[in-house]
Nucleic acid binder design. Sequence first.
DNA 1: TATGGTACTATCATAGATGTAAGTAATGAG
DNA 2: CTCATTACTTACATCTATGATAGTACCATA
Lengths: 131, 131
Amino acid sequence: MSKIKETSTNFENKIFLNECDQIFAASLIAGQWTLVICCHLTTGKLRFGELKKRIPTITERMLTLQLRKMEEGDLVKRTVYAEVPPRVEYELTKSGQELSPILKQLGEWGKNHRKTRNAEKSCTTHKVLAQ
Amino acid sequence: MSKIKETSTNFENKIFLNECDQIFAASLIAGQWTLVICCHLTTGKLRFGELKKRIPTITERMLTLQLRKMEEGDLVKRTVYAEVPPRVEYELTKSGQELSPILKQLGEWGKNHRKTRNAEKSCTTHKVLAQ
DNA sequence: TATGGTACTATCATAGATGTAAGTAATGAG
DNA sequence: CTCATTACTTACATCTATGATAGTACCATA
């Protein structure tokens, strides 16, 4: 693989294309509740009401909106059973499952980064940080 | 490592703690321009004006705001030189650099996910999607 | 007929993110 | 003295995400 000049249009384009996919991916996990929902679904299918119970602070409206957005983004699959009272199950799609390890890494990074930050802050300013 | 009952509080807590770090990490890369800026800084230091040139569609205001947020989040380091006209350089911190490979993976996932989606859509609905 | 459970939907209100346009400090060049 | 340069800041407008609250369809059950 030959090295591309950093000033070439090609080089800029490569960066830009990469950005695009990253931004596309990031936008799919951007919602305030998306990762929480994702996390709860990693262990298997859950009904709407079960999700609501596990995420007590979410409103039904937001849960609906987020699940729809995630369905739209092909992260979750929604299965409706023609029963009364209604039963709807949500599960991660294949893509959703493939995202999990990356999110896990992101979480690891977050953990370390948070530690590093707090260490540096307390080292330089000797302040205790909330959270 | 013994298996934890899925119904135990401990199990729920483990999920929740993991969530926290992920959400913390996600919030740091959440800005509309954060990843774009990150991307351009992976190749080295850049001045404010250079970043602006490389991201023609960003306004000065947004560039400032995002950079400040990234500085606040310890993703970038800001160096001011006492010159006139002023010179300010931005570069990724160690944490910012460590985030790069994960973002790269995220981009890879995004690329594949986008492909899969389009393939499935065109397969079932035979529609051409405007991206 | 009245009630309950499930998974929503509709409406209104607010907070936060982003965009537009203009202005600023400092100083060297002319 | 005037102007250009750089990295901003300020004020205002708008757009999007989130929140609070109430209402709905369906039918089994009492």
